[in-house]
């Protein structure tokens, strides 16, 4: 589904990604872990197409097509979803209005008929129930005045509605207490499917207790330095990223 080859990227002329190689197949959940500044979030933003992240080398193929060549909205319409680390507050635009515009942009792109108000409302209420979000939030401005947990849950609601083929969850656990984390993870798990893939970016192993990955990769200085199964996450939990400050990691599996 996604094939990243020797991806290099910089932010404000500073090289952040230095040759990422990663292949993700449909049905798989991959976790990317690593210390602060290792380039995890940069990778997430590059995949979503954010301005200011300049790709200086390498390629990303999404279902065989050049992802990097697509505008952010085209990526979204093609089924790529970024759950933001810091969801943006948009005063004056209600959640409902954004969600309707969003799903209809995607449906239109797929050549499907746009949903009318009634059909949309029915669908979004089902999705809100699925992620255990109170309907009241649908009528509020996007993320405005939401708590950290509510913002993250709102991201998962969008994900549940749009049913992306490939999702990137950027530090979805940051700022969540254990209850919020658990319920957000539940929402994510319901979206796991054989035809969908996810890339879960996180600093802590904690999230991976709830969203159990098939593969775990460790990033350091803009590269994937180790890959393994979920036991790698537990190892990192025990030993921390202290070794990352050394020049060489203890062992390299990739």
């Amino acid at each position: 589904m996604l094939e990243i080859k020797n991806l290099n990227a910089s932010v404000e002329d500073k090289a952040i990604l230095n040759g990422i190689d990663l292949a993700i197949q449909a049905g798989e959940v991959h976790a990317i872990m690593g210390p602060n500044g290792s380039g995890k979030s940069t990778l997430a933003n590059v995949l979503a197409g954010r301005d200011g992240y300049e790709v200086t080398g390498g390629s990303v193929a999404y279902n065989g097509r050049d992802l990097l060549d697509m505008a952010p909205e085209i990526r979204a319409r093609e089924g790529v979803f970024l759950a933001f680390q810091y969801p943006v507050e948009i005063p004056g635009v209600t959640n409902l209005y954004l969600l309707k515009a969003s799903i209809n942009a995607i449906r239109k792109h797929r050549g499907e008929a746009e949903l009318n108000a009634v059909a949309f409302l029915k669908l979004i209420k089902e999705k809100a129930a699925l992620v255990k979000m109170s309907e009241e939030f649908l009528y509020r401005s996007v993320n405005e005045g939401f708590s950290g947990g509510e913002k993250k849950r709102n991201e998962i609601l969008q994900m549940a509605l749009l049913e992306p083929a490939f999702s990137v969850l950027d530090e979805t656990d940051s700022g969540l207490d254990i209850d919020a984390l658990r319920s957000v993870a539940e929402g994510v798990n319901q979206l796991r499917a054989a035809d969908r893939a996810m890339l879960v970016v996180t600093h802590y192993q904690r999230l991976l207790e709830y969203i159990v990955p098939d593969f775990v990769h460790v990033m350091h200085a803009g590269k994937i330095v180790r890959s393994g199964d979920r036991s790698l996450a537990l190892e990192l939990e025990r030993e921390g990223y202290g070794w990352a400050d050394e020049n060489e990691p203890p062992e390299t599996a990739s």
């Binding site: 979503a48 197409g49 954010r50 301005d51 505008a71 952010p72 909205e73 990526r75 979204a76 319409r77 979803f81 970024l82 933001f84 969801p87 943006v88 948009i90 005063p91 004056g92 635009v93 209005y97 954004l98 515009a101 969003s102 799903i103 942009a105 995607i106 792109h109 401005s141 969008q158 749009l162």
Partner: peptide, 26 residues
């Protein structure tokens, strides 16, 4: 706001539509 614009585009809205939506909201 550039962050808000990107957020809307990342949800599939075209740039012109995203601009209109933010301007209208303002």
């Amino acid at each position: 706001d550039a962050d808000a614009l990107f957020y809307l585009r990342a949800r599939g809205l075209g740039e012109a539509q995203a601009r209109r939506m933010l301007t209208f909201a303002f």
